[in-house]
Design a protein around this nucleic acid. Sequence first.
RNA 1: CUGGCUGUGGCGCAGCUUGGUAGCGCGCUAGAAUGGGGUUCUAGAGGUCGCAGGUUCAAUUCCUGUCAGCCAGACCA
Length: 480
Amino acid sequence: MGKKDKQFVAEITPMEKDFAQWYTDVILKTDLVDYSPVKGFMVIKPYGYAIWENIQKYMDGRFKDTGHKNCYFPLLIPESLLKKEAEHVEGFAPEVAWVTHGGDEELAERLCVRPTSETIICEMYSKWLRSYRDLPFLYNQWCSVVRWEKSTRPFLRTSEFLWQEGHTLHESYDEAQEETLQMLDIYRETAEELLAMPVVVGQKSEKEKFAGAYATYTMEALMHDGKALQAGTSHNLGQHFTTAFDISYTDREGEIKNPYHTSWGVSTRLIGGIIMVHGDNRGLVLPPGIAPIQAVIVPIAAHKGGVIEKADEIFAQFKEDIRTEVDDRENYSPGWKFNEWEMKGVPVRVEIGPKDIENNQAVLFRRDTLEKEIVPLDQLKEKVEGLLEDIQNNLLLKAKHMRDEKTYYVKTFDEMKDIMSNNQGFVKAMWCQERECEDKIKAETGATVRCIPFEQENLGDTCPFCEKEAKVMAYFAKAY
RNA sequence: CUGGCUGUGGCGCAGCUUGGUAGCGCGCUAGAAUGGGGUUCUAGAGGUCGCAGGUUCAAUUCCUGUCAGCCAGACCA
């Protein structure tokens, strides 16, 4: 094999060839995660965790700006609590992990590892709430939860995953509904502005809604392979839990009332979304907003006089405002480093070598378009800052185009079958909203109702799948 | 959970059919040169073949079980 053949592609399976393998190659080779000895449990390595920290930082700020406070509830939940809300247990029981022993002694009541914390939080809320003056409760926690999954993939579906879960109580249904939609909107903005990941927002079908919810709202993103990813959900839980857990308060008129309840969450799954929305055959493409390293400085011929010094100088100039690193490793060639950092998705690369120093310039490379540009040193920082902004915007645009290209309108069941077997992507179609019809679509095409979008379009009067009267327009897709 | 494939130094693989206790490439370590798209030379280190049983004088190789990974379903954030 000649020099020219030894390219990046040798490392990563092209996505057109095998998308699943591409994903696995990318996450392992870019050091985001590793497999642990326990099935379905992943180790998030520093480079992957840094992405999560950036997501956390942004979202935590948004939560606090809207009046929420963080707290922490226990990992273990007594079985009796989990069972209090009937629909909820039924939904989660099959995937719950149980603690049955403390040391050698069997516990009198087994404890489940939280699959989500509604029950334990409601138990505590019932102790805390007394008066309408105490409302609203606006709490959030950052933690991990465990769901014993049958087939797992790092970030997309793991038995343990990191997330945040907000749990709020309100006086009225309207207020709870407003909270539910407000949080979904914050999720949408996070996806679009921070992750450059366009999403469709709307309501889940009865079948797909959260176990125990009155209504579930969701944001759905479309991946490069045409599959949809549920990227975040916000639930209006009505009074289902607050009555089951006997959470009550005295209202303004002196009457005992149950409050209205919401919960909402996003998880490390978002990272899987970023990878599959922006990535290409060279590896990751990280939006500057969450990239652990926004700019990497690669010194060329670093042993020559002044090069390292100049690289350090640029670093010092950048570091306050741009997450920057100097790659001064001596044992790798510049070409090797270029490929390495491209694979790791660093948005901007600064190349600085003897020739540049002579000309008072540096070479800038942007990961999204793979373009190079020569820039005078005195404009370098502002140019990089501009590039980062530009890349962030461009990634969102590109992703929107990709999604639009893979979004279809469907008027007949045959068209739907055709799209699901070939192209794959989002399908917009009218729908009767009946469970039976939903099951049939799933069985015959593999697609599920992703959501009933807030932005409705009228495509006709009949449901193309069962010929009954259509009630709404819905998005359908195969999902992760 | 069902079906298929896989498991051999850090990574990717060969060897197994016809049992006789391991080999290649990359990486790693040391030194030197090189350095603008995965650089070259020299010298080294490193595995008992996922795990547990079984068959056999002898198992990486054959058999059984089990664990883990991948793919496709079913189920689910």
